[in-house]
């Protein structure tokens, strides 16, 4: 075999996803949490594009492009929020932002 079967791509996707998940659960700095989220989004894109090739179809790529656009929007707003929180003199600690408690 000289090509790369689909399953390898899927395994890579799952691995990256797990890494991103770990990052989300362990990081306290909101900025670094967002980075881990980007990782997860990318792993999803890999799976999508992989399947696009498997089915010989552009649909998966379209989906991946939309995901990217949405990720961009999400980062913009997320970073804006982080800045706004920082302005309130709160420490950059996700545990501090717990007003939704209870």
């Amino acid at each position: 075999m000289s090509g790369v079967p689909l399953i390898w791509y899927l395994l890579l996707s799952f691995g990256l996803f797990g890494l991103g998940l770990l990052g989300v659960m362990r990081r306290r700095n909101p900025l670094l949490m967002l980075l881990a989220v980007e990782l997860m989004l990318n792993s999803a894109n890999i799976a999508l594009v992989g399947f696009a090739r498997h089915w010989d179809n552009t649909d998966g790529q379209i989906f991946a492009l939309v995901v990217m656009a949405v990720a961009a929007a999400e980062v913009v707003i997320g970073l804006g929020l982080v800045v706004a929180v920082f302005r309130q003199r709160l420490a950059l600690n996700v545990d501090e932002m717990s007003s939704l408690k209870g």
Binding site: M1, S2, G3, V4, P5, L6, I7, A52, R53, H54, D56, N57, T58, Q61, I62, L65
Partner: peptide, 17 residues
């Protein structure tokens, strides 16, 4: 899933997208 990838048509070019 575990096979050699098949040849694909034009799915990734800007025109196709």
């Amino acid at each position: 899933l575990r096979d050699e990838p098949q040849a694909t048509g034009d799915i990734g070019s800007p025109e196709a997208v």
